[in-house]
Structure formats: C-alpha cells, structure tokens
Amino acid sequence: MATVIIPTPLRKFTNNTARLDIKADTIENTVHELTLNFPDLKKHLLDDKGQIRSFVNIFVGNDDIRDLQQGKTPVQTDTVISIVPAIAGGFA
C-alpha cells in the first residue's frame, strides 16, 4: 500500500481526493490500479501505447522515477508517490 498524491488539476477525476492509498508493488502497477479505479485519469496519465505520458512526471519522495527504475521502481508500504504535471509554455 502506497500513498499517491494527486495533483490539483487532476483531482476532479478522483472525486476531489488529494491522497489515495493504492495497493501495488511497482510504480507501473500503481498507475494501472489508479486508472482502473478512476478511468477518467487514464488519458491524462498514459499515452496511446499505455506508457506514462511525457508531460507527466512521477516522483517517489524527491526522486524522479526516470532516475530510479522507471515504471519498475518498487513500491513499499510507506512510499509516497507524487504525480507531477509538467508545467511549461511560452510565446513561441
């Protein structure tokens, strides 16, 4: 069981819940469970191939899973996972 922190922009897809306890052993299984429970999250988290979207960062504590074992990063009972939307833009 890990705690997943849902970012504010996506809380309308989780019944305005900010923190969810998800039972899974890896990050990718956590995301899979999330999208099963909250199907409207899927298009915001996963691309057409079922991979985590490039505009979505997932952190375990303060570590980006890209610097760990990506989707295979193991999840412990006390793991805190943050879904972090990429915030970017500009006039051109």
Partner: peptide, 18 residues
C-alpha cells in the same frame, strides 16, 4: 514583447482546471 495570448506550445502543455 508579445501579447498576453497563449501560444500553441502553451496549450499543449496546459493542465485542466488551472
């Protein structure tokens, strides 16, 4: 030096709700 109008780059990266 540009107007306060979002670009396509702004739109693609934008989040709902915000």
């Amino acid at each position: 030096n540009h107007p306060a109008i979002p670009s396509e780059h702004d739109r693609i990266a934008a989040q709902p709700f915000f």
